[in-house]
């Protein structure tokens, strides 16, 4: 995985406290798999992992993040023309789905990699989209999905936009309506656990995971989550190297571990 020094082509503010940086990176754009991430240099000891949100016809790639601490605050200050030092593309993204319906489920800042997935598979597969957030001002990219001709179902905890409540309701309805299909999801870990439980073992379910990282390249063993090895025995999975997209079958949830 190479290291790039990428100019910021455009800075967008899709919601308060959320910034999307579009980076000029034609070589990278051509090789990205949705779900892969960048390990971005920020001042301090560690880089910050951010998923790619989109690619554009100009050969740009997007990083969309919420400002939660010093690293993302520094990134949010970048302007067009500034440069970012990124290691990318890192990790394994979503696999090519089988023919048939695909459900994309995104929560909060888990939405961006699913938009990248919609860009990739929206024309080849019947794609449904369910997006959730705390409130309307934390729900990103709904218009981007609409621009692809998709009709995202929206949920918010406070009901400020879409249905009030969590994504689980609409996900359960979709699963009941579709006999088969496959699910791709990214969001807070409790949301991923809920989605995995609803989908069960019957259909493919791919989850883009988060864990605190050191190196980002598989060397330091910081970013592990509990999984089941080939023989069913517990093993640690490195999110940066084996993930961040993992089959729900490989993961052990707190209740199973």
């Amino acid at each position: 995985m190479p290291q790039f020094d990428l100019p910021v082509a455009e800075r967008r503010v899709p919601q308060p406290e959320h910034v999307e940086l579009l980076l000029e990176a034609p070589a990278l754009a051509a090789t990205l798999t949705p779900g892969q991430f960048a390990h971005v240099w920020t001042p301090g000891t560690l880089r910050r992992p951010i998923s790619f949100s989109r690619t554009t016809p100009e050969g740009w790639v997007g990083l969309l993040f919420r400002v939660v601490g010093p690293g993302t605050a520094w990134l949010a200050e970048r302007r067009a023309g500034d440069r970012l030092d990124v290691l990318a593309p890192l990790g394994h993204g979503f696999p090519d789905p089988e023919p048939g319906p695909v459900l994309l489920v995104g929560g909060g800042v888990g939405i961006p990699p699913l938009f990248a997935a919609a860009q990739r598979w929206g024309k080849t597969h019947p794609v449904s989209v369910i997006l959730g957030a705390r409130s309307a001002d934390a729900l990103v990219m709904a218009d981007d999905f609409r621009a692809l001709g998709l009709h995202p179902i929206l949920t918010t905890d406070d009901g400020s936009v879409g249905e009030r409540g969590r994504v689980s309701g609409p996900v359960a309805q979709w699963l009941a309506r579709q006999g088969g299909g496959q699910v791709m999801a990214c969001g807070p870990t409790p949301m991923l656990a809920a989605v995995a439980q609803l989908v069960g073992g019957g259909r493919p379910c791919w989850l883009a995971y988060e864990q605190r990282m050191g190196c980002g390249v598989g060397a330091c063993l910081a970013c592990v989550v509990p999984g089941a090895g080939a023989d069913g025995r517990p093993e640690w999975i490195r999110v940066c190297h084996d993930g961040p997209v993992l089959s729900s079958q490989r993961l052990l949830w707190p209740q199973d571990a």
Partner: peptide
């Protein structure tokens, strides 16, 4: 060796705490 439960790293001022646990 299995090592410790995550989280295993935490950034501190000019430093880094780790508890990989020798996995």
């Amino acid at each position: 060796w299995r090592g410790n439960a995550p989280p295993r790293v935490w950034e501190t001022p000019s430093g880094l705490l780790n508890s990989i646990g020798l996995q």
